[in-house]
Design a protein around this nucleic acid. Structure first.
Lengths: 195, 195, 195, 195
DNA sequence: AATGAATGAGTTTTCATTCAT
DNA sequence: GATGAATGAAAACTCATTCAT
């Protein structure tokens, strides 16, 4: 019997290598060979497992989004307070894991990919809807009809900070980003309180 | 008689075509031939004028940033009130001209280019510094030490909304974007007012 | 207990699958994997049994030629009349079994293979010589020196009709083909009869 | 001004080289590079002019069929006698030009191509229909209802002899082939004459 | 015996770039 | 100034074949 069960291992290795290479070079113009080499195998094997470069990129994108989604879910587990939950989502966006420069750089490139690839766009839309509905869900009890606009602003802030991180802006840490977005949330919520 | 003074015309045509094609396809993966064809000339001529594809892209980027800079300047002319000036800058970001989907899509791709090309990064940094210093200059008198953070947030909001526009998000107009960012500015300023 | 005697079964399955795939696609550009999959095994096993793709194709060719040879032999068994025997050979060429479109398409491709592979050419030559000698043997007593030319014409007619069948020409049945060739034979023989 | 008007020259050179290479190797498995090298240029240029390998092959096929068609036309010019015209068509099939082994080998491969490529099949069908209608047109006045069957037989004979030629059968000359087919025509016509 | 794993060699195709005119 | 011609270099993808188990 042959060596068996390599597929998931290889796929995982390729996906990781793809993210790393896209992140490192900051472009989707990485060759399958580069990625495969980084993952320790031949480009032929990469094609064997993914069928095409596009499929590999989409898998990489799914991995990034899933990782993000998982982190959000586990952050939310057990939290009941609305504001608490909102801050947890924001925290997940800028967590150690998700806010690594190369992951964020890959993220930026996936935005670009989404202009070309309908499937990539779909993935991004799903992710965005989920983020949005999470935020609106917890904002509505606090600020009512202003919830959707505020959610949109939070999402935009996050994306904007991601761009800065992708550009390796100095002095931009996850903590600073969280602080910035949180402060926006505070002011948005407090506004409601005022007469 | 030789055609004289064609150079600026040709260059302009190529730059416009480059922006249009990058915006239309949503990717930097456009060929020189495509761009040259759209500009009504041969790809050889494009090389003649720009030396290389990269230089052409950089010129296109400069054009976009200049167009933006010019618009900001003319918006600011004659305005004295700090808040007024801040809102003018924001308005320029989402003006008819600058917020066209294809321009914004090109913009997003220039962010990506900046990861690879030091010159592109330099251009972006210059632009960003100018935007930032404009904002800080007018925020400081109003909110003091909170000015830098707020400026950063405004810039991030703008970039985040640009990404949404690049993705052709429905119901996202320049006016709505201005409203969203302005509302953030309002709340940031009003916060100061509180004891 | 080890499966015993699998070899001939596997080989037969592969040969059949090869003929079917070549016939189906109408080209030698079928992959070993395709054939192996159709035969219900891995491509590695196909190599195990045949050593190489070329050998597999040659075996497939041998199978087709053998099947044909066997059918001719059994058709001729017990037949004594010269004309009767000639018609029997012709009948075998267009029998249900041999004139199936996919077999004929494979046949056409074996002609092509024979241009490249000496062994394939040898097989085809052997088959052709046998067909020819069969025909000449029975034609000579009937038409003397005109036998070789007539045999060649009969063979050419058969090949020509095979090409039509490979192209899936409509209204071309085995029976119609037999009729056409037989009619030629009739006229060739009757010519002799004339003064 | 650039060197101009190379396109038809290059295309012709490539088509000739394609026919020669397909004929020489007896297979469609020739690479674009091989063909381009033989035609004295880079494979990139071949793609520039033909867009794809398939298109190049189709052009080669068209060239072969056109050459044939032209020769038939010029052979028929001025001939009025039905039998005379039939023999002229047959003569064209086996002319010095058309019956060159490599052309015939290419021809055989085009039959194979026609199994895969609808356009190739279309070309072949057109050619075949024209040949057939030429023959029937001149046979009908001579043998009435037997014309279609006889035409089909003549076409099959020609194709069969082409296969032999593609296999480089010894002692098979154009003249011998003409003789063989002509003799069939004679016997087919004389049959009618008999009571 | 049997197969999943793995790859080297090769093929088509694309494209920025150069050149001769 | 302007362009058709031309190509080298590289990329995605394929596949026969080998190997370890």
């Amino acid at each position: 019997m042959p060596k068996i069960g390599m597929e998931p291992i290889r796929r995982r290795a390729l996906v990781d290598a793809a993210i790393a290479e896209i992140g490192r070079t900051g472009t989707l113009d990485v060759t399958v060979s580069q990625i495969a080499r980084k993952a320790g195998m031949s480009s032929a094997l990469a094609h064997h497992y993914f069928g095409s470069k596009d499929q590999m990129f989409l898998s990489a994108m799914r991995a990034v989004l899933n990782s993000f989604g998982t982190e959000v879910c586990s952050s939310l587990r057990g939290l009941a307070g609305h504001k608490e939950r909102i801050l947890a989502v924001i925290g997940a966006c800028f967590s150690e894991q998700n806010f690594r420069p190369e992951v964020v750089a890959a993220w930026l490139n996936f935005y670009v990919l989404a202009q070309t690839s309908p499937e990539a766009r779909r993935l991004l839309t799903v992710y965005y809807r989920r983020l949005n509905s999470n935020l609106v869900h917890d904002l509505r009890p606090l600020i009512g009809t202003r919830a959707p606009g505020t959610a949109r602003a939070i999402a935009a802030l996050i994306d904007g900070l991601y761009i800065r991180q992708a550009l390796r802006e100095e002095n931009l840490t996850g903590a600073a980003s969280v602080a910035l977005v949180s402060s926006y949330v505070e002011s948005a919520l407090s506004q409601e309180a005022r007469p």
